[in-house]
Each structure stands twice: as structure tokens, then as C-alpha cells.
Design a binder for these strands. Structure first.
Lengths: 233, 233
DNA sequence: TCGCGAATCTAACGAATTGTAACAAGCAAC
DNA sequence: GTTGCTTGTTACAATTCGTTAGATTCGCGA
């Protein structure tokens, strides 16, 4: 996939440059404009993914522009403005802006907010649905474990929760308490073997040798460690 | 369609109340929680549209919660935090939050930002008659499912209701209660298997493999998730 | 090294949940 | 009435998942 395109519309040169630098450094394509008319002309031939718009423009009212942008183009619009009143923010957002950043701003935050917009706009974050590790591929979207030979094993939702927890923190101790907490969250502590059973079932599905588990290792008195070379995506 | 559901997770009673009032006034359904565990328990059977989360929770790390929320549930997450450092905001956003509001805040702005999230999240524009997903095209005006090969299968009104519900909220948990509510609206009693039967019939029409359905997944004890890349129009 | 209590493993059980085939009621068209 | 279709209900099969209980393993001190 190509780089997302971010446009910058601000009449101050210094701000345009700062944003351009930060965004390109972050891996985005950028186009910047000093006046609304230029920007609108460019819109006829390009479809930006995110538009940063300063409201105080010399040649046009920023708010109506935002309104049109949000409505007609499908792009995400982030207002950047020196006007810090709550009322300004509210009307900006109500008119269709997706976010409202107040000057002066930190470029890093702008980048983070741009990313947040893109994340929602582009669905299918495949990255969190599949993980490969030691001859296995876990498909969380299909609740399936696939062997390197191609044979498939289904796993249940509860098993998936455990597996995901492991795959998200490989080679690190996951304490029992920690696990209870992130999973079922069941109150019971003392005689609650549910966790063990879940892990046991997961182990069988992974074809672990009970005597010598290679992937899910028990740390007596502490918790578990998942030893696997995990790569997501 | 029914009111969007907004959840509030904050340990301060006063803040919860303030937000609840503002949001309900604005026409949203709300649910508020003082601790993360309660919230997570509720998540098993409800799918909020927007989650407001305070990071400083007594019983849990808010950031990992946000991460999981954003990833697993499809909901929009707005962090509300007293931590105003740029770095905090950046990490919060990078972890999957859609917005980051700093305390103290103005309720009106929170409402505006919640609205902004919903606007993007819920597409559902004009053409609600056709949807494409994973090799199928559903024509709600003709009550027809069309395969990519062109072969057609008719579906009934009741099946269409379920299918539409799924297609409107793909990749998100749809709880049983939620489904009863939006569909038949019947008094919804405990021994009402009609829902299951509808889904079963829909599954066969979609040619799902009973052993491992690819599109309509059951989450034991919670509800269903439709895993498909849906595009309307 | 041996023994013991605590921690963990796991087979087996069973309650709750979900799937679905079969039946029946309702209804429209003929 | 008969036929055909939709849809809820019933009954039973299948699955999920926590609990139980006995076996096994671990850490540690004698």
C-alpha cells in the first residue's frame, strides 16, 4: 500500500514546514497550501486521506470549508486553530471535523492524531488477526491454528484469549494474577483451576509434550512464559 | 435505529455523573463504571459504540485496557485523563485511542467529540440497499444474496433483519440481548431460541461450514461477531 | 537423599449454552 | 381446500468451559 496522503492548509509558512517535516518523517506523503483557493483547486485532482486545516485563513472562511470537506470528500478533517474557546471547538467538531488541535501544538501529537484518524478510516487491521510462531499460524479471525503442514485445528474463544495474551507478551513472565485479571476477571482466587485447565487445553492443541513443553512453560510459583518467536501480521 | 451506547469508566463519581447527564441530554444511552473489572464484565454482553476511559484507575492499568478495547472490540475509545503531557497523549493515541481529552474538561466538548467519533464509525448513508462482503452481495431490496459466480439465493425478511444487523456492525460483538432488542423486539424471554434458528438458517444460506463458520462467529456466553469486510452501496 | 506440603496438570463430569432437524401454526395465492 | 413459504417452537444433539478430584511435579528442609 502506498503512503497515506496528508494535506496541510495554513497561512503561516513556519507551521506548514514544521508539520510537513514531522509528517514526512512519520512516513506520510504531504501536500501543503497557504490559501484555501489553492487547496480547493488541488482537491479536484487528489483525494487526501487526512486534511489538516487552520481556521484563520486569509482568503476564505475555514469553517465552511471544513463543512464541505467533511461532507463531500470522505476525508478526515483535523482543525488546527489558535482559537481555544470551548465553543469554537464544539462548533468545529459539530460542523464535521474529526479532531480539533489547539495552537501551539507539539508535532508529535499531531502525528499521533493523524495516525488515529487513519487507523479508523482504513479497516481490516489485519496485523492483529494473525500471528506466526514456531511452525504455527494463529488466525484469530477464524479461530484457527494452522500447522506448517497445513493441518488446521480450531480453538475456542476462551482458548483464544489465552493464546492472544501469550502471543502479545512472548518470552516474558505472565503471572497467574495477571492472567486472571486480563482474562475472565473472575473474582475467585483460591480454588480456581479454570486458568490451568484453559492452558492445559491450549497446550494439547499446540501438540505440546506434557513432560517437556516447548512453547508454554510453567514457572512454578510465579506464572507462565510463552517461548516462541512471534511475528504478527 | 436505537440510541448509540456510550460507556464511561472513571473512578470519580462526580465525573461519571457529569458525563452521564451531558451525554443523556444529548440523546445517548450511557452505562458508567467505577472500576475496570466491572466494565470488562459488562463488555462480555454489550458492545458500546464509544468508550470513555479514565487512565488513572484503581484496579487496573488503563492503557492496556484501551489497547485491548480498540483492538478487539471495534469501539471507538476516548481517553480522559489528568495527565497532560504530550508524551502521555501520544502513547495513548498510539495504543489505539481515538481521542484524548484532558481534565478538567467541558462536558459540551466531550459530547461534541463523542459525536465526531460516531459520525465516522457509523457509515450507513443513503444506499442501504446493497452490501458487498467476502464474495457475496446482499440486495435488501430484492431479498437476494448473489454469489460472486452469479448464482442467487433468496432470503426471507427475518433472515434479512439478522443479516442487516450483522452487516451494519461488522467485526463487533453483537450480544444476544442486543439482537433480541433490535430485531423481533419480542418481550425477549429466556427460552427463546428463535434467534438461534434464524442465525442457523442464515448460516446455511451463506454456505457456512457448521464446524467452523467463517463469517458468523459465536462467542460462547456473549453473542455473535460477523467477520467480513463489508462495503455498502 | 528422602519426605512433605504446596502448586500445577489433566481426565472426567456436568451445567449452561448453542446448533439444528423436525414439526406446526400462520398466511398468501390459486 | 390445497399448495407453498415463512417463522416460531420443541426436542434433542453438540459444544463450551468451569469444577472436581486424584495424580504429578516442584521447592525446600531434614
Amino acid at each position: 500500500m502506498s503512503k497515506p496522503l496528508v494535506t496541510i492548509l495554513d497561512d503561516e509558512r513556519a507551521i506548514r514546514d514544521m508539520l510537513t517535516d514531522a509528517l514526512e518523517e512519520a512516513g506520510f506523503e504531504t501536500l501543503s497550501f497557504g490559501r484555501a483557493t489553492e487547496f480547493e483547486a488541488a482537491l479536484k485532482t487528489t483525494a487526501p486521506d487526512v486534511c489538516l486545516v487552520d481556521l484563520s485563513l486569509p482568503d476564505k472562511d475555514g469553517l465552511t470549508l471544513v463543512h464541505r470537506l467533511a461532507l463531500e470528500q470522505g476525508a478526515s478533517v483535523i482543525i488546527i486553530s489558535g482559537r481555544a474557546q470551548v465553543q469554537d471547538r464544539v462548533t468545529g467538531l459539530e460542523l464535521g471535523a474529526d479532531d480539533y488541535i489547539i495552537k501551539p501544538f507539539e508535532p508529535a501529537e499531531v502525528v499521533a492524531r493523524v495516525r488515529a484518524r487513519l487507523r479508523k478510516a482504513a479497516p481490516a487491521p489485519q496485523s492483529t488477526e494473525t500471528a506466526r510462531f514456531n511452525g504455527w499460524t494463529a488466525h484469530f479471525d477464524r479461530y484457527m491454528l494452522v500447522d506448517d503442514t497445513g493441518s488446521e485445528t480450531a480453538f475456542s474463544h476462551a482458548e483464544g484469549e489465552v493464546l492472544r495474551l501469550f502471543l502479545e507478551r512472548p518470552k516474558r513472565l505472565i503471572s497467574r494474577a495477571n492472567m486472571q485479571e486480563t482474562l475472565g476477571g473472575a473474582a475467585g482466587e483460591s480454588f480456581d483451576r479454570a486458568m490451568d485447565v484453559r492452558i492445559s487445553r491450549l497446550r494439547t492443541k499446540l501438540g505440546e509434550d506434557p513432560k517437556n513443553p516447548r512453547l508454554i512453560k510453567t514457572i512454578y510459583g510465579a506464572g507462565y512464559v510463552f517461548l516462541g518467536d512471534v511475528s504478527w501480521g
